[in-house]
């Protein structure tokens, strides 16, 4: 009973907020032409058509997947070892750290113009965009994991005569595992953002093509349905990976 009451208390406020937002949107939409602000049911019915009866959004998502997966996998394959290396070796961190940090905080989207220049408008510039979007966050998260390996563990390993390769493989790497999971979650979120940006700036395809096509035809209901699709997709993937994170490392607070 107490658990149920607590659950209800936790669930209710967001529900109230969303209801208020939808109600406000509905009221606003009454006085507006449909191409400016369609009403919630209109958007919902377009959403249903685009995902269930027609399924165009899934086709578009499939087209977007290639750049997202290849760029994300590259960032993971390079970012995880580099991050762990940087976290366990001060020299490497001093040399590479400033660049990774600079890429992390600077507006990397400006690089898309350069990628178009270098690779044309095919798949490659989109892969490059996804890569620069998610590599820095993966590297920095793994760096933290390796760096925060408790000194006691490393010292115990040394006392038992572990070589530095053994220390690295048996204490630093295992300690980084949960951070790698976190890095994947953060990287995935950024990868989705990079994919959408690349599809709007670099080459018009996939979900980006849907967005700009609907906008050109003033089909605002479909445009909003696509935006909600992206919103739900991002939320769903992130919360799935969060679940996974908690399941894999129940002792750790989420970063």
């Amino acid at each position: 009973m107490g658990g149920l009451g607590r659950a209800r208390r936790l669930v209710r406020p967001p529900f109230v907020a969303i209801t208020l937002i939808v109600a406000g949107w509905w009221v606003l939409s009454l006085g507006q032409p449909r191409y400016v602000l369609p009403s919630p049911p209109e958007v919902l019915s377009r959403f249903w058509e685009l995902t269930v009866t027609g399924g165009e959004l899934w086709t578009a998502l499939g087209l977007s997947m290639a750049a997202l997966l290849i760029g994300g996998a590259l960032a993971f394959a390079i970012g995880v070892p580099l991050g762990i290396l940087m976290g366990s070796n001060r020299r490497v961190e001093q040399v590479a750290g400033p660049y990774v940090n600079a890429f992390y905080v600077s507006p990397v989207s400006a690089l898309t113009v350069l990628f178009v220049y270098a690779f044309g408008i095919g798949l490659e510039p989109r892969i490059a965009t996804v890569f620069v979007f998610c590599a820095p966050v993966i590297i920095l998260t793994c760096l933290r994991g390796a760096r925060e390996t408790p000194r006691t563990m490393v010292e115990v390993a040394r006392v038992f005569g572990a070589s530095s390769a053994q220390v690295f493989l048996k204490t630093v790497v295992p300690h980084s595992v949960p951070y790698i999971v976190t890095a994947t979650r953060l990287g995935l979120g950024r990868a989705i953002k990079g994919t959408v940006l690349a599809e709007l700036v670099v080459s018009i395809t996939g979900l980006g093509e849907m967005l700009s096509g609907f906008a050109h035809h003033f089909d605002t209901a479909s445009l909003m349905a696509t935006i909600f699709f992206l919103l739900i997709l991002g939320q769903l993937l992130t919360s799935l990976l969060e679940r996974f994170e908690v399941a894999v490392t129940p002792w750790r607070q989420l970063a």
Binding site: Y35, V196, F218, L223, T238
Partner: peptide, 20 residues
């Protein structure tokens, strides 16, 4: 939750809507 959803959202996707 509303703020978090906006935070996770890919920015560039809403540009066409904002232009409208």
């Amino acid at each position: 939750p509303v703020l978090t959803a906006l935070y996770v959202m890919p920015f560039s996707a809403v540009i066409p809507l904002f232009v409208l």
